[in-house]
């Protein structure tokens, strides 16, 4: 528990102090409730030069009780996320550093958000959770990819 308390203090400092590398990425990263640091929500900016550019993307983070021995559980929520490594229905993310086999306790929530940003920049269609988008990417149809992402983000209109 102590570790997440420390991390919270560090995150507050990082987000308040400007100029850090996270300013372009993180809109918000905070516990849902100050008294329960096991449940967090985050909002990140869609990275430029991706179809997500200009959109705010929501995430929920659950901290396991043996954190940082076990990795945090991160999902795209509450909005559906069109991405080839994200389950469109559940928001589940296929990202190796979030699995027990690849997680390192030396990482923190800021690292995790960085890794997610990288996943948005470099989708991995070889291990898809969203086959439709993976197929579009494999065909190299960039326009269709951008169009589809924008379609979902604008609520299908």
């Amino acid at each position: 528990m102590s570790r997440i308390v420390k991390e919270y203090k560090k995150i507050k400092k990082v987000l308040e102090g400007h100029g850090e590398a996270f300013e372009n990425l993180i809109v918000q990263l905070a516990p849902v409730n100050e008294y329960d640091l096991l449940s967090w929500k985050a909002t990140i900016r869609g990275p430029s030069d991706t179809p997500y550019n200009g959109f705010s993307i929501g995430l929920t983070i659950k901290i396991p009780s043996d954190y940082p021995i076990s990795p945090p559980m991160v999902k795209f929520e509450p909005y559906k996320m069109p991405h080839c490594n994200v389950n469109f229905q559940t928001g589940e993310i296929c990202l190796d550093i979030l699995t027990r086999q690849h997680w390192s306790p030396a990482w923190d929530l800021l690292h995790v958000l960085k890794a997610i940003e990288q996943l948005l920049q470099e989708p991995v269609p070889e291990s898809p959770l969203n086959v439709d988008i993976a197929n579009i990417l494999k065909e190299g149809d960039r326009t269709a990819y951008t169009g589809l992402v924008r379609y979902y983000f604008c609520g299908g209109t």
């Binding site: 102590s2 570790r3 420390k6 991390e7 940082p68 306790p105 030396a106």
Partner: peptide, 8 residues
């Protein structure tokens, strides 16, 4: 002197 795991 700070531990990267517990940040203490």
């Amino acid at each position: 002197r700070t531990c990267i795991l517990c940040l203490n």
